[in-house]
């Protein structure tokens, strides 16, 4: 019973509360009450969907990773734009990427990153969380793409979720 009244995800609750204050026109009694109700209700309703938190999460590494991804998104968009506007046909390829990460949250961050960055879309994760299927828009060499993803994105995530 006590668990029904708690905040299972304190950071999510805080984010929801402050976002609600910014979204409403000025902070008032009503917006604070509604904000608390949302900050309590939404984590409670969605608690079954969240994976267990990882054993160690080094959150201070997240901003550097986010900046690198943001920069790569811009570079990737320019590359895709060049390819779309050039007359030659792209050389698409499906690639199986063997995962080293095992936490579900880390895997979903990695797949999202892959989808937003250089010429690749993460298409599927195998049921045993060991392989990702990647579709690459314009690939020369399978191994090169796997090595790039491993060095640039998976290593920092491994450091973050150990």
């Amino acid at each position: 019973m006590l668990d029904r009244l708690s905040f299972p995800q304190p950071w999510l609750s805080l984010t929801l509360f402050f976002t609600w204050q910014f979204l409403s026109d000025g902070i008032s009694g009503g917006s604070v009450v509604l904000g608390i109700i949302l900050a309590w209700g939404i984590p409670q309703m969605t608690r079954r969907f969240w994976p267990d938190p990882p054993a160690v999460m080094r959150g201070w590494r997240a901003p550097a990773y986010a900046l690198r991804v943001l920069w790569d998104i811009v570079v990737a968009s320019v590359e895709v734009a060049k390819l779309i506007l050039s007359p030659r046909q792209p050389r698409p390829m499906f690639i199986c990427y063997p995962l080293e990460l095992d936490h579900p949250l880390a895997i979903s961050i990695l797949v999202s990153t892959i989808s937003l960055t250089p010429g690749t879309v993460g298409a599927d994760v195998s049921d045993d969380n060991k392989l990702i299927l990647i579709h690459s828009l314009d690939a020369e060499d399978e191994q090169e793409i796997i090595d790039t993803i491993r060095a640039r994105y998976e290593k920092p995530l491994l450091e973050m979720f150990r």
Binding site: V80, P92, G119, L137
Partner: peptide
């Protein structure tokens, strides 16, 4: 509109349009 199949078309909207 231009790319040849579904999987290649997936790349345009996810990257260029989002940016």
């Amino acid at each position: 509109a231009r790319l040849p199949d579904f999987y290649t078309r997936l790349h345009g909207p996810t990257k260029a349009t989002t940016v």
